[in-house]
Amino acid sequence: MRIVLFAGLLALMLPSAALAGGTIDKACRATGRAGASLCGCIQSVADQVLSHSDQRRAAKFFADPDKAQEVRLSDSASAEAFWDRYAAFASTAEAVCTGG
């Protein structure tokens, strides 16, 4: 819960230009389905809860959602661990960035 509050405060305190440019932000913007503010917020949350390596992996999901399904259904321990981290990120980003 603390990380959600912290990420939300961070997103409000930083100008959107400061949030731009991360791996998740770039992938989000490339889809054309979200604006700069939302993509920047999602990047801010990613910076708080995902490693750079996890961010690179998760960014691929924006362009190819089937990759997410492949990871989710994988039986490998590393894929399952990543999926747990990714699911926590996605829930946090939704709560912080959309109020959901």
Rank of each mutant, 00 (worst) to 15 (best):
E94T: 11
S53F: 13
S74R: 06
W83H: 14
R56H: 07
T92Y: 01
R57D: 02
F82Y: 12
V45H: 00
L50T: 07
G35R: 02
A77K: 08
S91H: 02
Q48Y: 07
V45Y: 02
W83Q: 14
E94S: 10
A46N: 09
W83M: 13
S53E: 14
S51I: 00
E94A: 12
S37A: 14
F89E: 04
V45T: 01
S53L: 12
A68L: 15
F89D: 00
S51Y: 05
D47T: 13
C39F: 01
W83I: 06
F61K: 01
D64P: 05
V96E: 02
L50A: 02
P65K: 04
A58V: 03
T92L: 00
I42G: 13
L73W: 07
F61P: 11
R85F: 09
E70L: 05
V49H: 09
A46E: 00
S51R: 05
Q48I: 09
D75S: 14
A63L: 09
S74I: 06
R72P: 00
V49G: 04
V71F: 14
A77S: 12
Y86R: 00
L50Q: 01
A58T: 06
H52L: 09
A77T: 06
L73A: 15
L50K: 01
R56E: 10
C39T: 13
D64Y: 06
R56L: 07
D75W: 14
K67M: 15
I42Y: 08
A88Y: 03
S37I: 13
D75K: 12
S76V: 09
K67L: 14
V71P: 11
S44C: 10
S74D: 14
A46F: 05
K67W: 11
S74G: 12
D84F: 14
C41R: 03
F61V: 08
R85L: 09
D75C: 08
Q43G: 04
L38V: 09
A34T: 09
G35Y: 04
E70C: 01
A46K: 09
A34N: 05
E80I: 10
Q69G: 08
S78M: 06
W83V: 09
S44Y: 00
A88P: 05
P65W: 01
D84S: 15
V96G: 00
A93M: 03
W83A: 04
Q48A: 13
A95W: 02
L50W: 02
K60L: 10
V45N: 07
A81P: 09
D84C: 13
L73F: 15
L50G: 03
K67G: 10
A59I: 10
S78G: 08
G40Y: 04
A81D: 14
Q55I: 05
A90R: 01
V45M: 04
K67N: 11
R85S: 06
K67P: 06
A88V: 07
A90N: 05
